[in-house]
Amino acid sequence: MSVTAAQVKELRQKTGVGMMECKKALTETGGDIEKAILYLRERGMSRAAKKADRVTAEGLVKVVISDDQTAGSVVEVNCETDFVSKNEDFIKFIDQVAKLALDNSVNDIDQLKALDMDGKSVGDTLTSLIATIGENLNLRRVATLKAANGVVSGYTHMGGRIGTLVLLEGATGEDVQEVGKDLAMHAAAASPRYLKSDDVNPAEVEQEKELGKKKLLEQGKPENMIEKILVGQINKFYKEICLVEQAFVKDPNYTVKKLVDEKGKGAELSAYVRFQLGEGIEKKQENFAEEVAAQLKS
C-alpha cells in the first residue's frame, strides 16, 4: 500500500523520528501506525520513540542577529529538565539550529527540521540527540524577521528563558539600533501580546467590555455613564497588551510609540516576536511526599 503524508506526519508527531525513517517504518508495516512505532523501537530510534510522550517544558530560547543587523531569528528548543538545558550538546544543537534559521530565513518548524545539519536533517539530528541525552526534546517554534530598509534587534533574558526580536523599518544607523535594543528589552519585560490595537481580536475586546460593564453595573454606575467609562477602560486595556501603546519600561514618561517617533530617526516599529520558554505547555505537577508514600505502600 502507498503511505500518505498524513500517516507520516502522525507517526512523526508520536515518535519525534525523522520523516524518512517514519515513511520507511510505515512502508515496512503496511501503514499500521502502532506497528510502525514498534518497528522504530526495535531499531536505532527506539529510545527516542519511547520518550515521545514526555512533557518538555524546560529548555532554551535562542536569539541570533545578522552581522549587519538587518535580520534576526529566535528559536525555542524544549527538554524535560533544567539540567539538560545546560548540557553542552543541547546548547550546541540550539546554537546551530538558530544559525540555520537565520541563514535560511525560516518561519516554519517543519521547514527548519528538514534543513541539513552536518549531513543529516535537523529533525534526524534531534532524534539522535534524544537517544544520546536520554530525555525527550522538542524543536518547538521558530520566527525570523528581516528588514528591507531598517534594523532588527534582539534580546535574551534570564539565561535563555525569554527571547525577543523587534523590527524597525524605514531607517538605519547606530541611533536606530540603540532604540531597537531598548525595545527588544522592553518586549521581554512588558510581555506585550499584540503590536497595536488594530491587531487585537475583536472578540477579546468585546469580552473585556462585557466584563467591564458587568462590574460597573454591580457598582451602581448609571447606565448613561457606562459607555463613556468603558471607552477609558478599553484604552487602558490596549496600553497593557499592545506594544506600541505600552509605557516604556526605562522611562514611563514615554510610550513605545513616542520613543520611536522621537528617537527612531523616521523608523517605524513594524513587527516583534516574543518567546517565553514553555509558555502554553501544561507541566506535570510533582508531589515528592506523595510519591514517597506511594513507594512505601507498594
Rank of each mutant, 00 (worst) to 15 (best):
R274T: 06
L296R: 13
N87V: 00
V106K: 08
V292I: 14
M1W: 02
K263M: 03
Q295K: 15
A143W: 07
D82G: 04
G280V: 04
A131M: 07
V122H: 00
G30A: 08
S153T: 06
P192M: 05
G123K: 03
K196T: 09
K258D: 14
G266T: 02
T4L: 06
M225Q: 11
A6M: 05
L115T: 04
G170T: 01
G232Y: 12
D68Y: 07
A189I: 09
E290N: 15
R47P: 02
G72Y: 04
A57I: 08
E206V: 01
D261C: 02
C22R: 05
L11R: 00
D89P: 09
Y238E: 07
T81I: 07
G160F: 10
L60Y: 00
K92E: 13
Q295W: 11
E169T: 00
K23S: 05
A49R: 07
L100P: 08
A189F: 06
Q207T: 12
G30C: 03
S191G: 00
A190E: 10
V151Q: 09
I91D: 07
E290L: 12
K9G: 03
G280Q: 02
R274P: 08
T132K: 15
L139S: 11
V3A: 03
I234Y: 05
T29V: 09
E282A: 12
A143Y: 04
G232F: 11
M117F: 12
K221L: 05
A6P: 01
E80T: 02
D110K: 13
I133L: 13
G266F: 01
A114G: 14
E58S: 06
A289I: 08
S2R: 11
L137A: 10
I130W: 04
K196M: 08
L211D: 00
K283L: 02
Q246R: 08
A101P: 08
A48W: 05
S105N: 15
A36Q: 07
R140D: 09
R47D: 15
A271W: 03
I130H: 02
R193K: 14
V152D: 04
E279R: 08
I94G: 09
A148Q: 12
T56Q: 12
K50Q: 15
G180I: 03
E204P: 01
V55M: 10
I91M: 09
K250M: 06
M158H: 13
K9T: 12
L60Q: 12
L230H: 08
E80N: 08
A5Y: 10
A147Y: 00
A247T: 09
D261H: 00
A131N: 11
K221Y: 04
S270F: 05
L112V: 03
K146M: 09
E34S: 15
G154E: 10
C242V: 09
N253I: 00
D53Q: 13
K236M: 00
Q276T: 14
L11I: 02
K86P: 07
T132M: 10
